[in-house]
């Protein structure tokens, strides 16, 4: 898994590629926890290059969202593959996260 971050006018864009699993999700958690500690908002996560995501990845996003709620931050996920999208829906998280089809949609109003 590779994580790249980029500044956007307000907040941060995170681009991830590869698989987010129980071996790699701690690195994603480190990035997200550092940002949420600084109360960064919005955080936009582009999942276009993510081929696989397991429950540790979803738990990591849930924890980040919980942290962001304390400062009314916005965590936006975009470019979910059909498979990843199905898992979010099945885990009943598709209505909890802000999910956008494209990065452009997620970046609106930033």
């Amino acid at each position: 898994m590779k994580i790249t971050t980029e500044d956007i006018p307000k907040g941060k864009l995170i681009m991830i590629s590869g698989e987010i699993d129980m071996h790699t999700s701690p690195a994603l958690r480190d990035v997200l926890m550092k940002l949420t500690k600084k109360k960064v908002t919005p955080i936009i996560v582009d999942l276009l290059e993510v081929s696989y995501m397991d429950s540790s990845a979803i738990a990591t996003f849930v924890e980040a969202l919980k942290n962001m709620m304390s400062y009314k931050g916005s965590l936006r996920l975009c470019n979910l593959s059909q498979r990843v999208s199905e898992i979010f829906t099945f885990a009943k998280l598709n209505k909890i996260f802000e999910i956008y089809k494209t990065r452009e949609d997620a970046l609106k109003n930033c």
Partner: peptide, 16 residues
């Protein structure tokens, strides 16, 4: 079998 943070584990367990 993993080195996941306890906070992550707790959420995973609740999901399962």
């Amino acid at each position: 079998h993993t080195h996941l943070n306890e906070a992550t584990i707790k959420i995973m367990v609740k999901m399962k």
